[in-house]
Nucleic acid binder design. Structure first.
Lengths: 127, 127, 127, 127
DNA sequence: GTGGTCTAGACCACA
DNA sequence: GTGGTCTAGACCACA
């Protein structure tokens, strides 16, 4: 899990997205205990308040829950996790497709660029 | 050219992206005169200063230039336009690919989702 | 640091030059915190927006950077500072030399005028 | 005589400076007839009004005068020309010296940079 | 408190 | 009419 922020958007939002990604991509096990707020804020090098705000948003989406005195835990609802992962993938694909089209590329152009991109990464991975 | 803004990011940045997209996707002819700052700001329903900030960034990228009292003009450097279009498409593809992979999808999954997305849009276009 | 402006050129540009000069001539320590935008704008007796415009250009040149809610800081890149100082001195010398030559003065004339100028300032400094 | 303008300052002022330089550096003979406004404005690729404004300022400084129906002429006052040339050289030297000092360079540094600059130009001129 | 954004509105030089 | 500059002042997110 890498914590890299840009200045253009609120840090708590970026934190939220990083953590959400980690959860829905399976970087955390369902039901797993999260590191403490203090620990996480050290790892991310952000103010604990900022981290709390990100966790609050995760809680709203039902991805984590708090057990008083014992800490914060990833949801055990695997169906929710799968749904959110698919939904996010779908949204990203839709956005990607529309932006490429608005640049004037055809469906075929897009397929080709994507294939090229995959090829680059696979050959790079071989070393 | 549609001017629709979301609240998450600065308007001037969104303006810049909309205009940049319009230029590199060929929505303006190379060398063409832009509408005046006052006109454009009316079209986008923003303050002229906000628009100026966006135009300033476009000027820095070399996509437009100013003739002091006669207006702003799209660059005539068609090579620059083509380069920026390809570069943007490449970056978007790269970012899309990496994000999908970080969600745990395989190259094949990604190709399939993209194909599905294209199919949806094409069948929608048939009506 | 003196803030004195002439009417011929935009204030934000003059502000930029004054601040840049201050940084590359060592008037600020590398890494040092700048006065807040509000403070600086009071010192310079200009509107905060005008100052922001100048600071934006400094940021682009990499001479300052922003930590979101704690302020603006001079770059810690001492090499950049040295490079920019030398580069500016070189450019000023080049421009001075060419302008003097275009006035019809020989290299020797120029050396003499400069020596005279230095002599004046040194004797003035003795009082 | 090269007509190159930057966008930061009024064109008529830059024109004025170019023409003044040409006169005081001896590019025009004292008493010589100037090209017509129409011709000059074509050479400089500027609006005739802009050129007129520059000529007006030259007239105020006494560097040119108008003979009704026969055109504009360079002043015959050679003393004035010499005085202005020296004065301009002095001012440029003073400005150059002060700016270099404000960058933190010593008198000796300045002499060295100037010598280096001259050396570059002379060796370049040998080819 | 900190930087950042945005608007309304005035004014300027220039062609 | 054109771009450019500047101010006053409000408001926001964030730490």
């Amino acid at each position: 899990m890498k914590f890299e922020f840009d200045n253009k958007r609120p840090i708590y939002l970026q934190l939220f997205e990083i953590l959400k990604n980690e959860i829905i991509s399976g970087g955390f096990e369902p039901g797993q205990k999260l590191p403490s707020v203090r620990e996480l804020s050290l790892m991310a090098q952000v103010n604990p308040n900022t981290l709390q705000k990100a966790l609050g948003t995760l809680k709203q989406e039902g991805l984590i829950h708090t057990r008083r005195t014992s800490g914060k835990f990833i949801t055990e609802d695997q169906k929710l996790i799968r749904t959110l992962r698919l939904e996010k993938a779908r949204q990203m694909t839709e956005a990607y497709y529309l932006q490429m089209r608005s640049l004037g590329l055809s469906s075929q152009d897009i397929q080709e660029m994507l294939t090229l991109c995959e090829a680059n990464h696979e050959s790079a991975g071989m070393h």
